[in-house]
Design a binder for these strands. Sequence first.
DNA 1: CGATCGTTTGACGGTGCTCAATCACCGTGG
DNA 2: CCACGGTGATTGAGCACCGTCAAACGATCG
Lengths: 299, 299
Amino acid sequence: MHSVLDRPASAPCATPAPAVIPLPSPRRTALAPLPLSGSLADMLRLMGLPGDAGASPAGPHSTVALPVWRVHEGAALLRQGEPAHTLFVVRSGSLKSVRTKEDGYEQVLSFVQPGGLLGVQALHGGAQPVSAVALEDSTLFGLSAAALPALQRQCPVLHEALWRSLTLELVRTAETADMMAAVASDVRLARFLVWLSRRMVEAGQSPRQLHLRMARRDIASLLGVAHETVSRSFTLLADKGLLRVDNREVEILDLPALQQRARSTRGWPGDAAAVSHAARHAAPAPVPTSWWGSLQPAA
Amino acid sequence: MHSVLDRPASAPCATPAPAVIPLPSPRRTALAPLPLSGSLADMLRLMGLPGDAGASPAGPHSTVALPVWRVHEGAALLRQGEPAHTLFVVRSGSLKSVRTKEDGYEQVLSFVQPGGLLGVQALHGGAQPVSAVALEDSTLFGLSAAALPALQRQCPVLHEALWRSLTLELVRTAETADMMAAVASDVRLARFLVWLSRRMVEAGQSPRQLHLRMARRDIASLLGVAHETVSRSFTLLADKGLLRVDNREVEILDLPALQQRARSTRGWPGDAAAVSHAARHAAPAPVPTSWWGSLQPAA
DNA sequence: CGATCGTTTGACGGTGCTCAATCACCGTGG
DNA sequence: CCACGGTGATTGAGCACCGTCAAACGATCG
């Protein structure tokens, strides 16, 4: 199985690529397909099987083997501008998805953890819109775009899982926007930490003990603030007794309070959009189950 | 034309819901299924057909009829928290996707234009993570989640198109992040306008004449600034001769200069992630293309 | 033990948020 | 017809927050 895909001539990512974007010489690409493979069933489990999938647990597909890739810390799995031909599902570790501007500024778009998708662009070809860099040594399942259609026909469960993951990814997008949208810098950080905490419980670990895999700069970029500000916000939250911070080791001491802080927004309800004047005065709803002033009562 | 769809009697946001959930009294919903239907082929064209689809242009599926929905300006197509059962493709008009916080603050996540997807959550059930409000009278194709699997099997081209749109949506996410990430407020606005301009050419219209469909507050929310700041940024760009602004009528006078302004980032390349100290000093590159320190050369 | 990089803290200045007033633009009703 | 209230857009004044610059400390690794 693995023998087939060992060293596919040149590393998929290493292909110098007729760069559309001036991406620089990758000095040493620490990316390699492992002489390992994982089962499809393992991957589906990571992706969170659709509910009805339990009905066919030991289908013939569960024994299908998939190539497993490894990236070392700091290495790029995907490079912005290079052609996309493989869809990845994170198996272990974590990566950051970054976008490089023309002037070299790097915007971190998201942190991706086990079960997360990378390289979705492969699904309909074209150049990678973003780069992906490993925050730690990580492994990923690789699904060749060319082989994908056949695989999906052959195994409907995979199709379901991919579909689900894709939409889930879209939903998570909103979370990222939430973090960047907060005004006060400590609120942004609080949201980030709450987000991380949630991901911890999803992974079956303690929601209070956080092991930050990324640098302050990365967090700063994601949140849209200066990295010094991230530091200051850390100490501020620590001073308030919500956290205990030791470099990249963070312990959440008061999760409810942290969540409370994360919830706070600058503006008034009226500041955002579409809140009608009448609603501001009349609506008593404490949990503003959305309503919108509906127009066009008559035509 | 409008005569056909005036007063569609009762609300349809309610229709599809055969008493599944107690709808929070939609006072008057200006949302209705049209007594019209569009062809599947029309929708696929809007979504940007996959390249290989041209091979089967006049397949049997091109005659399939789809229900068309209409939302009036200010009305909610989707409501955060309600069950998702329909996937929408914008046919005409435009909508905003918003997220309502517990305290009533509304975060605008994106503006959706013809060809765009709404209600993707319907693909795997659950509650709507976001609301969608029409910025103007709009029409949409509606794809029932229940019927979707069969439809896709029956018509592979639709499957392709959906897949493509989904990943495209994911890519556009990055654009939104870019806009919110810029530091200087006028840069954010410049990016937003450039983004809008690009969408105009995609729609086959002039890239310079912009008809803003959204309020300043909506823009402000999307960009993560106060709405007064949006106003100030508008006048600032106008004073510099890049724009001519008259309320929601914007004319781009100097597109290159606007793009230039949109490109500028606050910090120096060194501020973001992964740019090493050495790069700050040694790299003469005006376009300091990124690289990543690769670790773990050998395994 | 000395490099290098990441993190923290300080001081200062500027940007943008808050509060508030003004103007323009509706649709309604006197 | 023009007041009238309601809303959106623009502009101003004041001040807090945060970005910039700078330095010190800490960690990791050769």
